[in-house]
Design a protein around this nucleic acid. Structure first.
Lengths: 342, 342
DNA sequence: ACCGCTAATGTAAGCGCTTACATAAAGCCG
DNA sequence: CGGCTTTATGTAAGCGCTTACATTAGCGGT
C-alpha cells in the first residue's frame, strides 16, 4: 500500500527496454550474458530493471529458452527425517548453481509416484531425483523418451546400470547381521517396511538372509513382519514378533523409526533391552543416539549423499550421458541396544 | 530404448490436434474443460493424447493462461521436523486441489528468504506460504504490488492483520511458565533461538517474561541464552546457563531440539532431571516423548496447520481478499522433565 | 424445406521471452 | 582516411499454449 510505483501491472522486458531506451534483445542479454553488452548500456538497463522492480516471467523464459533451471525430486515423504535431511543438502547445493528444487511426495505409493514424475516433467523439470529403483518400465521409457536426466538416490545396486548414488543397503545390513550372530543370537526377528515397493527395505532384509545362509542357518530362524513407517507400527510389529516367536533374542529393524517403536514395545512388555532382547535399527537418525537404551544402527551419510546427488545431476545436465554410479560407505554404530544372547 | 514411438521429439498440442483431426483449440478444451466438447471428438482426442504420450508444456501453459497452479513456500529448513511435518500436510492438501508445491529454504537468513520469495514469484507461484511475520517492508510491498496472495504460518499475533494461521507462541509459553512457577521455581534459565529474526522464538521468550512480570518477579530472575537450532547448540547453551547462574532450577527452551540438548548436557554434568533441574521444550515433536526423562513441552498441531494453510491459500486464490487470521490452540504436555524446585 | 437459435469447432492473436540474423557502430591497418 | 574486421545493438521469428471471436453444424418449429 505504501509505495505504489506507477502502474499496478507487472513490468515486462519491453517496459524495461523502453525505459532504458534499448531493444528487448539488449535487456535480455544484459540479464543473461552481461559481457556481451557494453558497460554503459548495461548500467542503464540494470538501473531500469531496479527502478521497475522487474523480474523475468518464468513461463516465458522456459518457453523461449527450453529449459527451466528446475530440478525435480519425488520422495516418499518429507516426514521421514532421512529424506528431509538429504533433500535439504540437495537443495542447498542446487541453489549454489542457480537451480531451483521442485519437490513432490508419493506417500510410498508407486502409482502416485508415477503421476508425480510425469507432473514434474510436464512442469519442465530439467532433471529428476528419484528414490530407489522400483518403478514401472513404462516410466523409465517415458523418461528416456523425454530425455530427462534422472538420478536414483538412496539405493545402490550392483546389478543396475542406471545412474545412482546411494549405499549398499544389503551389504550394510549384512555387516550388522554378522555382528548380531556373533553375539550368539540364533532366533531373529525382522521388522521391515513393505518390501514390494521399497528396494531399500528389500535389500536390507536380504542382507540379513544372506548372512544367515552363509552361516548355515535356515530361513525359519528369521521371522519377518512388514509394516508401514511409523513408531506405533514398529511397536505393534514388535509385539507380533514376540507373540509368534517368544524365543526371539534379537529384532533387527530396517529403519530407526521402527526400531524406536520396537524399543518402546519391549519396555511396555517388561522386556529389558538388551538383556532380554536386542534391537537394531538403520539410518542413524538423531533419535537413535537419544533413545533409551541408545540404538545400535547403521550410519548412512544422508547429507553427503544429497549434496553429491546435486553435483552429479548438474554435471549430467551439462554433459548428458555422464551419470555415474556411486556407492557411499555405511558404517555400524554399536550402541547399547545390542547385547549378547541370553 | 525399448519402445521408441515415432519421432524422438516431444509431442505438442499441434501434434495431438493433427493426429485427432481437430484444431489445437479443441484439444486444449478437451484437456481443460472437457464438457465443452462432444464425447465423440473428446474420445478421439484423448486417444491421440495417450498414443503420443502428450503432456502439456508447463511454460507455455503458464504464459498463455497467466497462472501456474503452483504455490510456493519458503521455510527456514526442512531439517526441522516441525516444518517437514507441516509442509507434508500442506503439500498433500494442495495436491488434492491440483496445485503443486515449490519449496525453498532460507536457512533462517532474512536476506536469503527475501531472495527466495522473489525467485518463487518470478517462477510464477500463484500464492505463497511464509513462516512468521519477520521480513522487510519492501518485501511486503513487492508482494502486494505483484498481487500474490500470501499467508503467514506458524505464527499468530493479535496485532498483525496479515492473513495468518498459527498459534499464539507467547500465550502457549506463558501457560507453561505459569506451571513452572507454580512448581516453586524462582531462578529460571531460557534457551532460545536467535530472537531478532524469529518471531516464534521471540514470542515464546516474551511469554515467559510476561508471566514473571505478572507474578512480580523481576527480569533478572530469567537468564536468557540465544543459540542456533541444533542439539549440540542446546547442550552448549545449557552449560552456559548453569555456569552463569548455578542456582537455576528450571531451564525453559523455545523448542524441543534445544531442550533435548539441555537434557543431554544435564546428564553429562551429573545433574538429575527433574530432581536437580527441570527442563521444558516447545513443539512436541516425537523426540519429546522418547527422551529420558520424557520432555514436558507445548503441543502444537503442525499437521493440521499445514492442511488448513493449504485450504486457506486455495480459498484466497479463488476469491482474493478472503484471507483470514486463524489461531490454533496449543496445549501443555506435562511429562517427567518438569518437577518441583529443590 | 426453411429460418433461427444454440452448441461445437476452428481461426488466429497474443502471452513474455530468447536468439539467429541483419544492421550499424567502432576500431584497425596501411 | 577508405575499406576491412570486430563488436554492439536492433529486428523479428518463433517457443506451445489459451481464449475471444468467427464460423459452421445441428436441431426444432412451422
Amino acid at each position: 500500500m505504501e509505495q505504489v510505483t506507477s502502474e499496478s501491472t507487472v513490468p515486462t522486458l519491453a517496459d524495461v527496454a523502453a525505459r532504458a531506451g534499448v531493444s528487448t534483445a539488449t535487456v535480455s542479454r544484459c540479464l543473461n550474458s552481461p559481457d556481451q553488452v557494453v558497460p554503459d548500456t548495461r548500467d542503464r538497463v540494470l538501473k531500469a530493471v531496479r527502478d521497475l522492480g522487474y523480474a523475468p516471467n518464468f513461463g516465458a523464459q522456459a518457453l523461449a529458452a527450453k529449459q527451466t533451471n528446475t530440478v525435480g525430486a519425488v520422495i516418499p515423504t518429507m516426514e521421514n527425517a532421512v529424506f528431509a535431511r538429504g533433500l535439504q543438502a540437495f537443495q542447498e547445493e542446487l541453489g549454489r548453481h542457480g537451480k531451483t528444487l521442485l519437490v513432490a511426495s508419493s506417500a510410498y505409493n508407486q502409482t502416485l509416484e508415477d503421476e508425480q514424475v510425469r507432473a514434474l516433467v510436464a512442469r519442465g523439470a530439467d532433471a529428476l531425483l528419484l528414490i530407489g529403483y522400483d518403478r514401472s518400465p513404462d516410466l523409465y521409457a517415458f523418461l528416456t523418451k523425454r530425455q530427462v536426466p534422472t538420478l536414483v538416490a538412496w539405493s545402490f545396486a550392483a546389478d543396475q546400470d542406471h545412474p545412482a548414488i546411494g549405499f549398499n543397503n544389503q551389504r550394510g545390513m549384512a555387516e550388522l547381521a554378522r555382528l548380531v550372530l556373533a553375539r550368539g543370537h540364533r532366533q531373529l526377528g525382522c521388522i521391515s517396511a513393505p518390501t514390494i515397493t521399497n528396494d531399500r527395505a528389500r535389500g536390507r532384509v536380504q542382507g540379513i538372509r544372506d548372512v544367515m545362509a552363509e552361516s548355515g542357518y535356515d530361513r525359519d530362524a528369521l521371522l519377518l513382519v512388514e509394516t508401514p513407517y511409523g513408531i506405533e507400527n514398529g511397536e505393534a510389529a514388535f509385539r507380533q514378533v514376540m507373540a509368534a516367536a517368544p524365543e526371539t533374542t534379537a529384532v533387527m529393524c530396517v529403519n530407526d523409526v521402527l526400531a524406536i517403536g520396537a524399543l518402546r514395545a519391549a519396555k511396555e512388555m517388561g522386556l529389558r533391552v538388551p538383556e532380554d532382547v536386542s534391537v537394531t535399527g538403520f539410518d542413524d537418525i538423531e533419535i537413535a543416539m537419544l533413545a533409551e537404551p541408545s540404538l545400535t544402527t547403521v550410519h548412512v551419510p544422508h547429507r553427503e549423499m544429497g549434496r553429491r546427488a546435486a553435483s552429479m545431476l548438474i554435471q549430467m545436465l551439462q554433459t548428458p550421458g555422464t551419470g555415474q554410479r556411486i556407492e557411499l560407505p555405511t558404517d555400524i554404530r554399536l550402541r547399547r541396544s545390542l547385547g549378547a544372547a541370553k
